[in-house]
Design a protein around this nucleic acid. Structure first.
Length: 430
RNA sequence: UCCUCGGUAGCUCAAUGGCAGAGCAGGUGGCUGUUAACCACAAGGUUGUGAGUUCGAAUCUCUCCCGAGGAGCCA
């Protein structure tokens, strides 16, 4: 048994392909079978004159997505999709599929999402999931090579990390627990133990967002580094982004082709990325009339973010936002206490914010004050305050949304395609 | 939560107050190089739900349900 991915090695040889029937065309005395095995597709040809009548007749009856084992000789042929053909000598029907709901013509989003367990067999979804697999591997390669330790944060948590309105509450024996919306606070504890850590896992937000950019369950990568400042994490973020994109360009070219992704904008991605302050972003907006301007102190909406990113070919860092529109744990800029030492990275090609990071507040008294201001109960965060009691150090980190990064790399208009089984406000099945 | 759009055959859609139709899938038959193959035939319907207007409703009005896109919020 061999995999279609490595078919070129077997040119001229007889092989067995174990897979599923992706499509069939027939022409009376010749059948064309497109076979997929999860690593690629190959066209099999069945000629009436070169096979037993029983087999030829069987092939005519095999339904789409039936599982089959095909034996035959590998031949190079430019007429075949993929460049290679299998001249089929024998075929075994492992299971005859019932009429397959996903047809060759187009489908609506609702239908496809309801059939997600089958939809992932389709060509485009196959390519996306292969790229996702490459990216999750590259993430770990990148951080490992830089001496980071992966630190898995818990999913059951006692309290909020960001706001308090977006938590999924679950019963936890006689108490309540909440599904984690970020591993960051735990990463902060981790970096005090291990120096450089990153979390990588699912996070949950009960936001009632119904857009192509939102999932209720999504994966985050959150590096956190002791003694690092804001500049350090911007450098890390641009190197990280570049590494991932280069890796996909090198290793998943075929999959990008399937997606018809124009790779030129991705090939441009190299450090350094432009860096502008919040104030400079406001100034950029003041100079134009295409999107509504915003006044100092407000966060950017989607139109403003898009306009700013359009001014650059690379992803752009916007740093030092007004502290009032940012999270409690962000350290203030000593040069201007109205500002937080934070940064957002806006992806190019209008994919919006994919990274948010900051230097963390490391002074106990200041952090206690912030908890009060943000109305966050101190009791459940005592452990977090402990990090400022026992050898507190400056430290910084960022969070990156895996599916948003993937949507950009794949140039997809739906973040839902980027995760095997998407969870959205109105959909929890399959 | 709000705004906009939609729900008709298994799927994708048409039918703008007057006989509910096509393509694909599935079925049958044909075809020796197809690329979402093609050709022919047959089959396939409680028009999301409940009410109302009307001689007559898929179509107009209202209720509710479901979905999509967007806003806010965020990654």
């Amino acid at each position: 048994m061999i995999w279609i991915e490595e078919i070129a090695k077997y040119e001229g040889k007889e092989v067995e392909i174990h897979g599923w029937l992706y499509n069939r065309r027939s022409s009376g005395k010749i059948h064309f079978l497109t076979i997929r095995d999860g690593t690629g597709i190959i066209q099999g040809i069945v000629l009436k004159d070169e096979i037993s009548p029983d087999t030829f007749e069987l092939v005519d009856r095999i339904s789409q997505e039936s599982s089959i084992i095909a034996r035959g000789k590998v031949k190079k042929d430019d007429r075949a999709p993929g460049g290679y053909e299998l001249e089929i000598k024998g075929i075994l029907l492992v299971h005859s599929a019932e009429p397959y709901p996903i047809s060759k013509k187009s489908h609506g989003t609702d239908f496809l999402l309801s059939n997600r367990h089958l939809w992932i067999r389709s060509r485009r979804q196959y390519a996306i999931l292969r790229i996702r697999g490459e990216v999750t591997f590259a993430i770990q390669e990148f951080f490992n090579s830089k001496g980071f330790t992966r630190l898995d944060a818990p999913i059951f948590t006692p309290s909020a990390c960001e706001g308090t309105t977006t938590l999924f509450e679950v019963p936890y024996f006689d108490n309540k627990a909440y599904l984690s919306q970020s591993g960051q606070l735990y990463a902060e504890a981790g970096c005090m133990a291990l120096g450089k850590v990153y979390t990588f896992g699912p996070t949950f937000r009960a936001e009632k967002s119904k857009t192509r950019r939102h999932l209720t369950e999504f994966w985050q990568i959150e590096p956190e580094i002791a003694y690092a400042n804001l500049d350090d994490i911007m450098k890390l973020a641009e190197n990280f982004t570049t590494y991932i994109i280069q890796k996909v360009l090198n290793k998943r070219k075929e999959e990008l082709d399937i997606l018809e992704r124009d790779t030129k904008p991705l090939e441009l991605i190299k450090p350094p990325f432009p860096r502008i302050t919040y104030q400079e972003a406001i100034n950029l907006l003041d100079k134009q009339n295409k999107v509504p301007k915003i006044s100092w102190g407000n966060d950017f909406g989607a139109p403003q973010e898009t306009y700013i990113s359009q001014q650059f070919k690379l992803p752009v860092f916007i740093h030092r936002y007004p502290a009032e529109c940012k999270a409690f744990y962000m350290k203030r800029d000593p040069k201007d206490p109205r500002l937080a030492l934070c940064v957002d990275m806006i992806a190019s090609e209008e994919y919006g914010e994919i990274i948010g990071g900051s230097r963390r507040e490391d002074e106990l008294a200041v952090l206690e004050q912030r908890l009060k201001e943000f109305n966050i109960p101190k009791e459940s965060n005592e452990w977090y305050l402990d990090l400022r009691r026992y050898g507190s150090v400056p430290h910084s980190g960022f969070g990156l949304g895996l599916e948003r990064l993937l949507a950009w790399i794949c140039k997809s208009s739906h973040i839902r395609e980027m995760i095997p089984f998407p969870r959205t406000i109105d959909r929890i099945s399959p």
